[in-house]
Design a protein around this nucleic acid. Structure first.
Lengths: 228, 228
DNA sequence: GACTGTGAAAGGGTTCACAGCT
DNA sequence: AGCTGTGAACCCTTTCACAGTC
């Protein structure tokens, strides 16, 4: 995954609780996913070791990470699946529905709009935009595609929390500027280019080509290992 | 960024050159992208500061990272765009075409197959698989969709380097097992579940829901900042 | 006995600051 | 003068090991 989020100074904002390290924040959703998978299992509790196994990290890591949230486990027993799930959700701000807009109704944009993983995780796609007049007015996954000309007004009217950019690289910075101008403070960028945003706005980058290029590097190393 | 790649021990394999830190490897593709964007510019060279600006990192970081590759810059001048591009490509193993298979011809799989960013970056989609008989035989982006039953044989016959998993979560582990069994050593997993692979196989995870959940956390923090 | 929570130690990664080249 | 390359300092993250609790 590509990513950059908080300036160190943004973190210092947290006054009350222990600050949660970035690295931990990035893993909490992983634990959440593992907990949901485990929700149907026989026992209502889970040890750090079992959770670690499911999430693909070490048990010590789990315990350390969860300790930043508070003491939600029981010594000698483990963690209550349902309770821990609720606590992590709360800490991630997932206890209220988050409203998502997708900008760019190309293949990827449409794929994301139809992606089932959003709705059952508390996200709702409330707007889809495209600059192509032929696409404007069509319906994708129960949502009408709007013109990018109307972005500014519609973004605030529909109270969008997160904007997902799936336009070509050339349009990405412009889209980000408009979106930020409309008050959106969180952006997920799939366009293969660097996008800059003002202080206080969070942006994460996902570049499919980059993921493949990183794999390419380690492929070579593996070959070398085989050759030794 | 979702991801896990090399056990620490895998790194120790490198005998000849200075080992390149993981964090640096993950940034090299970023520099590559920035260099390509700068390729059309007036000057044939670029300072670490200019490159940093384009890639969204600090100049010191650029210099440190590039120093792991060798001394490819010129003091007082900067880096030659074309030469540096070539060197990074070589180090990432991108000087030969890499052959990609996509498993799962749903919305996301099709979007990826059609994604232009692959071909112009040296990747070639040579196979697409799906378990749905209705999809098998159809053509997506000039490639015939094959049955997942034929994966094992086709993966080796077509010399696939990297497998991309875009199936539902329930099928992901099975797909990974088959793919690894066929000799593929690099996997990019989009299924929202943890997949385990044997030592020596590289896997990276991209989970769209997780990216949104991470953004959700920092959204809260930003609100807190505004409130202070 | 089993398992969590956490200080302390170890390990990586980033930033600094400047020596060294052109 | 301008900019790279790099040891050293700093900071963040992970791992260890064990005290604390059920």
């Amino acid at each position: 995954m590509g990513s950059e989020v908080p300036r160190p100074c943004t973190m210092r904002v947290m006054l009350r609780a222990r600050a949660i390290p970035q690295a931990t924040v990035a893993r909490l959703p992983l634990y959440l996913r593992a907990l949901r998978e485990a929700a149907g299992s026989a026992t209502p509790t889970l040890s750090s070791e079992e959770l670690a196994e499911r999430a693909g990290v070490t048990a010590a890591q789990i315990r350390k990470d969860l300790s930043y949230l508070g003491s939600y486990g029981t010594r000698g027993i483990g963690y209550d699946i349902e309770y821990l799930t609720k606590q992590i959700c709360r800490r991630l701000g997932l206890d209220e529905e988050l409203r998502v807009a997708i900008v760019g109704a190309g293949n990827l944009g449409v794929a994301l709009a139809r992606y089932g993983g959003f709705s059952n995780r508390g996200f709702r796609v409330v707007a889809i935009f495209d600059s192509d007049p032929a696409k404007v007015g069509t319906t994708v996954a129960d949502t009408k595609v709007s013109s990018t000309k109307d972005m500014s007004s519609l973004l605030s009217k529909r109270r969008v929390d997160i904007a997902v950019i799936t336009t070509p690289a050339a349009a990405a910075q412009w889209v980000a500027d408009v979106v930020v101008g409309a008050g959106v403070q969180s952006i997920l960028n799939f366009a293969p280019t660097t996008v800059s945003v003002p202080e206080g706005v969070s942006i994460r980058h996902v570049d499919l080509g980059i993921e493949l290029e990183i794999l390419s590097f380690y492929r070579r190393r593996v070959d070398a290992a085989a050759a030794v």
